[in-house]
């Protein structure tokens, strides 16, 4: 990963971006990630691409955009590793769940329900409903992936997680769409996958030596705050977030974790309605 990233980072423009980046002190403070070329990361989304980057550049761009999010993913993966073991799963069950299901929150729900002795049908349907939001990701990104080969579509489907989608959809929505934008999703998805597997294994290995009072699971909502807050600039976006948040909070008692898809749909419809009210064209 490091060797692939080097050539692109050598340009003077990039160095300037790093030097002027207010994030650099924080990045340097992230010592436990020092094995990564993370001190050279640009601010998320501020990368100025060449007009049409080649596949390798696009892939590296995806990695670079995904890396900052790993500060949230690593602790969360460790939390899942610890929790899986605490729930009575074996090492292999915990570790392999991270590649079989590959969905942070849904793995936590799986482990907790399994520990609570819920019927297999309840466990399966609960996790499935929780992951229904991925259909929304799929429908949003489909028009960009439709013409790829089956192999590509299967791999990108497997990698289409919250974080990969959040990072790569910005790339796909650029105008014009970069020709090799699917390499961006591949890079961001594989980065997330790798960190998720390693951090799960680390959590299993650390076991209960990782104190619960560190609240490391809080890193994931923080990651999403970092993505969402800066785009809350206009009324439709603010309304969408507010509607979704309200339904999420007050829909908690709904069965099978329906709250998440209900909240998402409420937010989407609210955003679109407010937008139409402002600009009826």
């Amino acid at each position: 990963m490091i060797s692939v990233a080097q050539p692109l980072m050598r340009t003077a423009k990039k160095r300037k971006l790093v030097r002027n980046n207010p994030e650099t002190p924080v990045i340097l403070a992230g010592v436990f990630l020092c094995a990564l070329p993370i001190d050279k990361l640009g601010r998320l989304g501020s990368y100025r691409a060449m007009t049409d980057p080649n596949p390798k550049q696009e892939f590296v761009h995806g990695i670079r955009d995904q890396l900052p999010l790993q500060l949230g993913v690593i602790p969360f993966g460790m939390v899942f590793g610890v929790l899986g073991m605490a729930s009575g799963l074996t090492e292999w069950q915990t570790i392999l769940m991270s590649s079989i299901i590959f969905g942070g929150a849904s793995q936590v729900v799986f482990a907790q329900l399994w520990m609570a002795g819920a019927a297999p049908v309840i466990v399966g349907s609960s996790v499935t409903v929780l992951n229904l939001r991925h259909v929304l990701y799929s429908v949003t990104i489909a028009k960009y992936l439709r013409n790829l080969s089956l192999g590509w579509r299967i791999i990108l489907g497997y990698l289409l997680t919250d974080e990969a989608f959040a990072v790569s959809i910005k790339r796909f929505e650029q105008n014009p769409v970069p020709r090799h934008a699917h390499y961006h999703l591949l890079g961001s998805g594989l980065t997330l996958w790798t960190f998720w597997q390693i951090s799960t294994a680390a959590g299993v290995w650390l076991g209960t030596t990782l104190p619960a009072h560190l609240n490391l699971d809080f890193a994931i909502p923080l990651t999403f705050i970092a993505i969402v807050a800066p785009i809350l600039r206009k009324m439709p976006q603010i309304s969408a977030a507010a509607a979704s948040g309200l339904v999420a909070v007050f829909g908690q008692s709904l069965p099978w974790n329906i709250w998440i898809i209900a909240a998402a749909l409420a937010g989407i419809v609210t955003g679109a309605i407010v937008e139409r009210g402002q600009d009826p064209s």
């Binding site: 429908v139 949003t140 979704s244 948040g245 909070v249 998402a264 937010g267 955003g271 679109a272």
Partner: peptide
């Protein structure tokens, strides 16, 4: 509004 709506739900909860 898909990204903002889904992520806001997770944040709020």
């Amino acid at each position: 509004y898909v990204p903002i709506a889904v992520l806001s739900a997770i944040i709020a909860a």
